[in-house]
Amino acid sequence: MATQTRLRIHQSAGDSIFKAIIFIVLLFCTVITLLPVINVIFVSFTSTSEQVQFADSFLHFPRVWVIDNYRYLLGGSQLWRAMLISITRTILGTVLALILSTLTAYPLSRLELPGKNLIMFVFFFTMVFSAGTIPTYLAVRNYGLIDTFWAFLLPMAMSTYNMIIIRTYFHSLPHELEEAATIDGCSDIGVMIRIIIPLSTPVFASVGLFYAVQYWNSWFDSILYIRSRSLWPLQLYLREIINTASVADIGLDSDASLVKPTANALTCAMIVFTAMPIIIVYPFVQKYFVKGIMIGAVKG
C-alpha cells in the first residue's frame, strides 16, 4: 500500500515535469509565431520620429498610436483600386470555382455513371503531371487573356483536389435519401438540387474558404498574366514594396505634404493592409478549414 502511494506520487511528479516542459515549448512556439506579426502591427502604427528615436529597440510598443503610415500609403488611389481588384477577384473566383467544381464533382460521385472512371482519370492526371509555367503561359496568351481580368479567374477556376473533396462528401451522403426521392419521382437534377446540395453546405463552406484564400493570396499568376499596374492586386504592390522599399518607385500619388514613412513602416503597413482580411476572418472560420482537410484526407 505504502509503496503504491509512493509510486503514484513519483509518477505524478514525472508527469508534472513532462507537462511543464510541453507547456513551455508550446508557449515558445506560439510566441515565435506571433512575435513577428505583432511587431509588424506595432511598427505600422508608430510615427516616423518615434521609429528613429527607438531604432535599436526590439518590439517597440508605440508610445503614441498614429495612422500616418497608412495615410501616406492609402493617400493615392492605387491601393484602393488594388484592394477592389483583390476583393472582386476573390468573390467572383470563389463563386466560379465552387460552381465549376460542384458541376464536375456531382456526376463523378454517381456510382452508376458509364465512363466515370475514364473522366475521373482525366482530372487525376492533372494532379501528377503539370505542363509547367511556360506552356501554360503560352496557352493563356493564345486565348487572349493576358492583361485582362479573366486571367485572374479562369486559369485557376478549379482545383482537382478541391473537386475531389466535394465528390468525397457527396459520396458519403446516405444513398437511401436519393432512392426515396427517385421513387417519389425526382429526376437526376431534382435529386441534386433538392436533396444533395442543401445537405452539402458544410463542404461548400470548407472548399469555398479554400478557394477564397487561394484567390486572395495568389500572386504568381498576376506576375505572369498581368502587365498594367491598373490591374495589380494588393499582393503585387506588397511584392513591389519589398523589392524596392520605397513609395516613389511604386508610383503612389500620395500627398506630398505628409512625412515619408521609413521603409520598415511602409512594409509593415502594407503587410497589415494585405493580410488584414485573412487575419480578421480566419479565427472564426478556422474549423471549416480543418473539416475540409479532413474530408480530403479520408479519401484523398
Binding site: P36, V37, N217, L238, I242, M270, I271, T274, A275
Partner: peptide, 16 residues
C-alpha cells in the same frame, strides 16, 4: 495562422 498568409506576405514579414 501563418499557413493562410501568402508567400509575399510572409516574405515581407521575414524582411521585417
Amino acid at each position: 495562422l501563418p499557413h493562410f498568409m501568402s508567400w509575399v506576405v510572409v516574405a515581407a514579414i521575414a524582411n521585417t
